[in-house]
Amino acid sequence: MTDPGDFYDIEELLDARERAVLHEVRATLRREVTPVINHYWTRAEFPHEIIPILRGLGIAGLPYPGTGRATGRPLLDGLVFAEIAAVDPSIATFHGVHSGLAMGSIHLCGSAEQQERWLPAMANLDLIGAFGLTEPEVGSGVAGGLTTSARRDGDTWILNGRKTWIGNATFADLVIIWARDEADGQVKGFVVEKDMPGFSTRKLEDKIALRVVQNAEITLTDVAVPEANRLTRANSFKDTAAVLRLTRAGVAWMAVGCARGAFEHALAYAKEREQFGRPIAGFQLVQDLLVRMIGNITASAALCSQLARMQESGTSADEHSALAKAFCTVRMRETVGYARELMGGNGILLEHHVGRFVADAEAIYSYEGTREMNTLIVGRAITGHSAFV
């Protein structure tokens, strides 16, 4: 078997061009990122030198036409997310925030002129994007409790409020800010540029997960945003939710990749580590852990692959992305725990990598909708009754 991490050969669903893209991503990131990522994870710093490497791969905005780069099906985009996460979940999160949330907002909610203005430069990583939705006092209840305000003044919008846990925000060129219009009470989207007066960021320190991701608290104090920067097709939270539907599928793929990365390091360790005169890979209890891991990964990848088919056909709904995110992140959390268990005490040493996946899995488990919130979305769909408060 050439790739035990893809036990059911899901990669074969891609065509030859798509497989070439995936293989280039895999080889490049394992060569360029794996040797250095622990250094940055320990120091909670972002490796800006990899941005030209990602630019060369041409994977930002894969599903979106009009970027000036080749497009890709949802399945390719998802498998790319998984490949990045299998190397490092923080880099996958950077990619997800930029390519999924920020570019996705402009693709789904921007006018043709706005798409032409920003998407090609973002696809080339000449402009880095971030996504500002969560607030210090509002997480899961953001749909009805968003407090950041937008007030129109002629051809300008005045934004006030705070956002938190905003990935990429410390160095992003563009931040999609979701704010409530004081006139009609609806949530609208705005592209805020980093040099606009009144816009400031403060890096969140001392995280135990996704330490490479530069999360920040954003403060908006009378930020004047031109009407040309208001996303013209974002007129209510339903439009925000459309972006989240798209990106939750990406997070599910990232969970697959995170689990797979931990599994691959654990498998390599089991083949090399000897006890009682032979590799521990030959012990029954070790094989039991490895099979539990690959079962979780395979089930999750198969679910995500079917979701990608539904996305391509236009038949996916909120509940489909929600189930994928909830299921895959639970299985991911279990899998990285098995990987750490297999490695014993060595599993907590960064040099063996698995400890990084264990820590980072905690963040992936929570963001883009907690398990509980996604469960309620699916529960509403299958029962016809809403259990939301």
Rank of each mutant, 00 (worst) to 15 (best):
F263N: 09
E116T: 13
S321V: 03
T42K: 14
E362G: 13
H352M: 10
M122F: 06
T42M: 12
E11V: 13
R273Y: 14
R292W: 13
V286F: 10
E45A: 14
G198T: 02
A172N: 03
D360V: 02
G110R: 07
T147V: 12
M1K: 09
A242T: 07
R309D: 15
E135C: 07
W41K: 06
M343R: 01
G5I: 09
Y269C: 05
I176Y: 00
T67G: 05
V142S: 11
T67C: 07
K238I: 11
T67K: 02
G250H: 12
V389S: 12
I364E: 02
F276E: 12
L29H: 00
T247Q: 01
R19S: 08
I364A: 06
S105L: 01
G369T: 05
A234R: 08
L210Q: 09
I166Y: 10
M196G: 09
L101Y: 15
E49Y: 11
H39F: 14
T93I: 04
R292D: 12
A308L: 06
A252D: 07
A249T: 06
G161I: 03
P226Y: 00
H353V: 11
L159K: 06
A85R: 02
I84V: 09
D77G: 10
I53K: 11
R292E: 13
T219Y: 03
D155R: 05
M122S: 04
D288A: 10
G154A: 07
W157C: 01
S386G: 07
Y365S: 11
T383N: 04
V291L: 14
I176S: 00
L76T: 01
R162M: 14
C109N: 14
I51S: 06
T240K: 07
I53Q: 10
G132F: 02
E351D: 13
L204Y: 08
G198L: 00
E227K: 07
L210A: 06
V33N: 02
G58T: 02
E12C: 11
L57C: 09
Q114A: 08
S316T: 07
W165G: 08
R273P: 09
A150V: 05
T315M: 12
T335Q: 03
Q115D: 04
R211H: 09
L204E: 15
V187G: 05
L29V: 02
A281V: 13
T156Q: 09
G277Y: 08
P120W: 05
N124Y: 05
L307R: 03
G161H: 02
R152L: 12
P52S: 02
N215E: 15
M122A: 03
C109F: 02
I294L: 09
N374H: 08
L119W: 00
V389Q: 12
C304L: 01
T34P: 00
